[in-house]
């Protein structure tokens, strides 16, 4: 039990939380403005199509209106931009969390729930609990370790529970069904069409995917080196899915970054940039003269 608690509160660099927050809040801006806009258009849909979810019934959330979606959209973007500064991390972080979650609710309360966005709610609710975290903070903290661990757990739970959902809704026979064929028929890209000509490819892929999802929690027992390789493999899988059926679980992809030493990558990039600037200074000055 105490080992489990130590694991949950493993001290991790505060700078890592600071970088993850930047990625999360930048993602929120991109997501609200460009990636996931069906909530926005529900402002114009007739309330007859509104189908409140449990959350909406408990909190008495109204059907969307043009005014509501405007306030949620621009309020969330403004809060996320403010949160990017790193100031008032709890107040601004939770403001973004509420705005983004409500905006997703508006998108999902019209009959179609996307199944890839719930884990991000965990990230947004728990990242503010760390409090102030500077990009150049060299300390490690148990609060940072907890938040990162919680994000990792939520991201990996997504894989495992989606394997479980396949068993629950599709049955054990899911792996031998034509689910992927259906996906490619309905929304396959031109460069995925050959998969339909060679049906064993998609059939085989279902087995690989299901196995990978079911065994996803193993990632927590691997060495650091292999852990990063597995995260890389998941990114490759998501890139292939996007190429084939243009579906990407964007918020989930941001959460998977919680496994990576973001502050080390940032330091590396900064060092490269500094070297490039000192080396590139002369030619740039030359160019400016001409």
């Amino acid at each position: 039990m105490s080992r489990l608690r130590d694991w949950l509160f493993t001290p991790m660099p505060l700078a890592r939380v600071a970088w993850l927050r930047i990625l999360v809040f930048a993602f929120v801006v991109i997501d609200v403005l460009g990636l996931h806009t069906s909530g926005w258009y529900h402002g114009w849909a007739d309330p007859v199509w509104y189908e409140p979810l449990v959350m909406g019934k408990v909190l008495h959330l109204p059907a969307a209106s043009v005014l509501l979606v405007q306030v949620l959209k621009w309020g969330t973007v403004a809060a996320a931009l403010a949160a990017l500064t790193g100031r008032a991390p709890r107040l601004l972080g939770w403001a973004v969390a509420i705005g983004w979650t409500w905006y997703q609710y508006v998108a999902f309360a019209y009959g179609k729930v996307d199944h890839d966005r719930a884990d991000f709610v965990v990230a947004m609710a728990l990242l503010p609990t760390v409090g102030l975290a500077h990009l150049s903070d060299r300390r490690r903290s148990e609060a940072a370790g907890f938040a990162l661990r919680a994000v990792q757990l939520a991201a990996i739970a997504t894989y495992f529970l989606s394997a479980w959902a396949k068993v629950r809704f599709g049955g054990w026979d899911w792996v031998n069904s034509a689910t992927m064929v259906r996906a490619v028929v309905r929304r396959g890209t031109p460069w995925a069409q050959w998969l339909l000509e060679v049906p064993w490819t998609l059939h085989w892929f279902q087995w690989v995917l299901f196995t990978a999802e079911l065994t996803a929690p193993v990632i927590f027992f691997l060495s650091e080196k292999w852990r990063r390789r597995v995260v890389g493999a998941w990114f490759v899988f998501h890139a292939m899915t996007y190429a084939a059926i243009t579906i990407a679980f964007w918020p989930h992809l941001v959460m998977m970054l919680a496994f990576l030493p973001l502050e080390e990558y940032a330091a590396w990039l900064r060092a490269r940039f500094a070297r490039w600037r000192s080396r590139g200074a002369a030619p740039v000055a030359e160019e400016a003269r001409t």
């Binding site: 729930v113 996307d114 199944h115 890839d116 719930a118 997504t158 529970l161 989606s162 479980w164 959902a165 396949k166 629950r168 809704f169 599709g170 049955g171 026979d173 899911w174 069904s177 034509a178 689910t179 992927m180 064929v181 259906r182 996906a183 679980f249």
Partner: peptide
């Protein structure tokens, strides 16, 4: 809610 993306059998 359950993570049921592409979970139905076809």
């Amino acid at each position: 809610s359950p993570w049921r993306m592409y979970s139905t059998s076809q």
